[in-house]
Amino acid sequence: DLSALRVEEVQNVINAMQKILECPICLELIKEPVSTKCDHIFCKFCMLKLLNQKKGPSQCPLCKNDITKRSLQESTRFSQLVEELLKIICAFQLDTGLEYANSYNFAKKENNSPEHLKDEVSIIQSMGYRNRAKRLLQSEPENPSLQETSLSVQLSNLGTVRTLRTKQRIQPQRTSVYIELGSDSSEDTVNKATYCSVGDQELLQITPQGTRDEISLDSAKKAACEFSETDVTNTEHHQPSNNDLNTTEKRAAERHPEKYQGSSVSNLHVEPCGTNTHASSLQHENSSLLLTKDRMNVEKAEF
């Protein structure tokens, strides 16, 4: 173990290094160091905050020279020094078990990766560091076993998940096959086929009936047209017969005018059967003409 005197000496050296690497504005270890034209180094955030307070150039807090945003430059070497100082402080805390008085939040800088452990060898070769390295080497064999167990647990979990997924996939297939086998029997399929065939026959029977009705309507229309044509021909046949009657009536009127007047009046009210309204109107006109002729003949006879 380190003596108290040596611990104090190391602590004083760390404090001196820390004062050199402090920012003059925030009085902390410089984060993202930036250098000016006057070779003074500050935190990048502190300098941008200072420049944004005034429009135009501002003055350096140490030498009062003008500073602009374009004049600022990043210093990589200074950032490396800060990183190495942080590593020294971490090693000091691990070796002594004491917390550094002016320690900052170094938890963000710590890294437990194997590459980081290899890099620590180049920091300080001390008894405390050696003991700590031995402890780490002793704890390393235990870690692979834990990793193997965790991997086995994960693989077993994956296997159970896969088996569950396969079961879920197989179950719908089985149910679907069961439904297909038990849903419709052979008799049901035959009945469905016969039902479809009967429906098709009914459709075939319905369509000819409609065509037959249309044919019957067409035949009825044709018969009505033929009947009207026969009526017209009958009226045409009746007209010459009426003319013959008129000639006979004229002759009778010349011989017996008194008797014919009474008979002509009675004939006005008689309509021949089986004739249309057109034929009756023609008869009325003929009878009126005959009456006028008879009157003329009677007057001539009187004179």
Score class of each variant (00 low, 15 high):
residue 1 D to E: 06
residue 1 D to Y: 11
residue 3 S to W: 11
residue 3 S to L: 06
residue 5 L to D: 08
residue 6 R to V: 07
residue 7 V to C: 04
residue 7 V to R: 01
residue 9 E to T: 02
residue 9 E to Q: 02
residue 10 V to F: 01
residue 10 V to R: 00
residue 10 V to Y: 03
residue 15 N to H: 14
residue 15 N to I: 13
residue 15 N to W: 11
residue 16 A to Q: 15
residue 19 K to S: 02
residue 20 I to D: 14
residue 22 E to D: 01
residue 22 E to Q: 02
residue 26 C to Q: 00
residue 26 C to D: 01
residue 28 E to V: 00
residue 28 E to L: 00
residue 28 E to W: 00
residue 29 L to Y: 03
residue 31 K to C: 06
residue 31 K to S: 07
residue 33 P to N: 07
residue 34 V to H: 04
residue 34 V to C: 05
residue 36 T to S: 04
residue 37 K to N: 14
residue 37 K to M: 10
residue 38 C to A: 00
residue 39 D to F: 01
residue 39 D to L: 02
residue 40 H to S: 01
residue 40 H to D: 02
residue 40 H to P: 00
residue 41 I to R: 03
residue 41 I to E: 02
residue 41 I to K: 01
residue 44 K to R: 07
residue 45 F to K: 08
residue 45 F to L: 10
residue 45 F to M: 15
residue 48 L to W: 09
residue 49 K to C: 01
residue 50 L to V: 12
residue 51 L to Y: 05
residue 51 L to C: 07
residue 51 L to R: 01
residue 53 Q to H: 01
residue 53 Q to S: 07
residue 53 Q to A: 06
residue 54 K to I: 04
residue 55 K to M: 12
residue 55 K to N: 13
residue 55 K to H: 13
residue 56 G to C: 08
residue 57 P to F: 07
residue 58 S to K: 07
residue 58 S to A: 09
residue 59 Q to G: 05
residue 60 C to I: 02
residue 60 C to L: 01
residue 61 P to L: 00
residue 62 L to C: 09
residue 63 C to M: 00
residue 66 D to H: 14
residue 67 I to Y: 02
residue 67 I to M: 04
residue 70 R to F: 14
residue 71 S to K: 01
residue 71 S to C: 02
residue 73 Q to G: 12
residue 75 S to N: 15
residue 75 S to V: 15
residue 76 T to M: 04
residue 76 T to G: 10
residue 78 F to E: 06
residue 78 F to G: 11
residue 79 S to R: 05
residue 79 S to P: 15
residue 80 Q to L: 12
residue 81 L to H: 01
residue 82 V to E: 00
residue 83 E to M: 05
residue 83 E to T: 01
residue 85 L to S: 04
residue 86 L to I: 09
residue 89 I to G: 06
residue 91 A to C: 01
residue 92 F to S: 00
residue 92 F to W: 04
residue 93 Q to G: 06
residue 93 Q to S: 04
residue 94 L to V: 08
residue 95 D to G: 00
residue 101 A to L: 04
residue 105 N to I: 14
residue 106 F to N: 07
residue 112 N to R: 12
residue 114 P to S: 05
residue 114 P to R: 11
residue 114 P to V: 11
residue 117 L to I: 10
residue 119 D to Y: 02
residue 121 V to E: 04
residue 123 I to T: 06
residue 123 I to Y: 08
residue 124 I to G: 07
residue 124 I to P: 11
residue 124 I to T: 07
residue 124 I to F: 07
residue 125 Q to Y: 07
residue 125 Q to A: 11
residue 125 Q to T: 10
residue 125 Q to M: 03
residue 126 S to A: 12
residue 126 S to D: 12
residue 126 S to Q: 13
residue 126 S to G: 11
residue 128 G to R: 14
residue 129 Y to C: 03
residue 129 Y to Q: 05
residue 130 R to C: 13
residue 130 R to I: 11
residue 131 N to L: 05
residue 132 R to A: 13
residue 132 R to P: 11
residue 133 A to D: 09
residue 135 R to M: 06
residue 135 R to P: 06
residue 136 L to I: 08
residue 138 Q to L: 11
residue 138 Q to W: 12
residue 139 S to L: 14
residue 139 S to H: 05
residue 139 S to C: 03
residue 139 S to Y: 08
residue 139 S to A: 13
residue 141 P to C: 08
residue 141 P to M: 07
residue 143 N to F: 14
residue 144 P to N: 12
residue 144 P to W: 04
residue 145 S to I: 07
residue 145 S to L: 11
residue 147 Q to W: 03
residue 147 Q to M: 08
residue 149 T to D: 08
residue 150 S to I: 05
residue 151 L to A: 05
residue 151 L to H: 07
residue 152 S to R: 12
residue 152 S to Q: 15
residue 152 S to M: 07
residue 153 V to S: 12
residue 155 L to Q: 08
residue 157 N to P: 12
residue 158 L to T: 04
residue 158 L to K: 15
residue 158 L to H: 13
residue 159 G to K: 12
residue 160 T to W: 12
residue 160 T to A: 10
residue 160 T to N: 08
residue 161 V to L: 11
residue 162 R to T: 08
residue 162 R to E: 13
residue 162 R to G: 06
residue 162 R to L: 00
residue 162 R to A: 08
residue 163 T to P: 15
residue 164 L to E: 10
residue 164 L to I: 04
residue 166 T to W: 00
residue 169 R to Q: 10
residue 174 R to M: 11
residue 185 S to F: 04
residue 194 T to I: 09
residue 196 C to W: 05
residue 198 V to L: 10
residue 199 G to L: 02
residue 199 G to Q: 08
residue 199 G to M: 07
residue 199 G to E: 12
residue 200 D to T: 07
residue 201 Q to C: 03
residue 205 Q to P: 10
residue 206 I to V: 01
residue 206 I to E: 07
residue 208 P to G: 01
residue 208 P to L: 04
residue 208 P to H: 12
residue 208 P to M: 07
residue 209 Q to I: 10
residue 209 Q to R: 10
residue 210 G to Y: 11
residue 211 T to L: 05
residue 212 R to I: 09
residue 217 L to S: 11
residue 217 L to I: 09
residue 219 S to E: 12
residue 220 A to E: 05
residue 224 A to D: 12
residue 226 E to G: 09
residue 229 E to G: 13
residue 229 E to R: 10
residue 230 T to A: 12
residue 232 V to I: 12
residue 234 N to C: 13
residue 234 N to V: 02
residue 236 E to K: 13
residue 239 Q to L: 04
residue 243 N to A: 09
residue 244 D to Y: 06
residue 248 T to L: 15
residue 248 T to C: 11
residue 249 E to S: 02
residue 255 R to P: 14
residue 256 H to F: 14
residue 257 P to Q: 05
residue 258 E to C: 09
residue 258 E to F: 14
residue 259 K to C: 05
residue 259 K to Q: 14
residue 261 Q to R: 06
residue 261 Q to N: 12
residue 262 G to C: 08
residue 263 S to I: 05
residue 264 S to W: 13
residue 265 V to A: 13
residue 265 V to E: 09
residue 266 S to E: 14
residue 266 S to L: 10
residue 268 L to R: 12
residue 268 L to M: 04
residue 271 E to F: 04
residue 271 E to I: 07
residue 271 E to A: 03
residue 271 E to P: 10
residue 274 G to S: 04
residue 275 T to Y: 01
residue 276 N to Y: 09
residue 277 T to V: 07
residue 277 T to Q: 06
residue 278 H to S: 09
residue 280 S to K: 07
residue 280 S to G: 12
residue 282 L to S: 04
residue 282 L to T: 03
residue 284 H to Q: 03
residue 288 S to L: 09
residue 292 T to I: 14
residue 294 D to W: 12
residue 295 R to S: 10
residue 296 M to H: 07
residue 296 M to T: 11
residue 298 V to R: 02
residue 299 E to V: 08
residue 302 E to V: 08
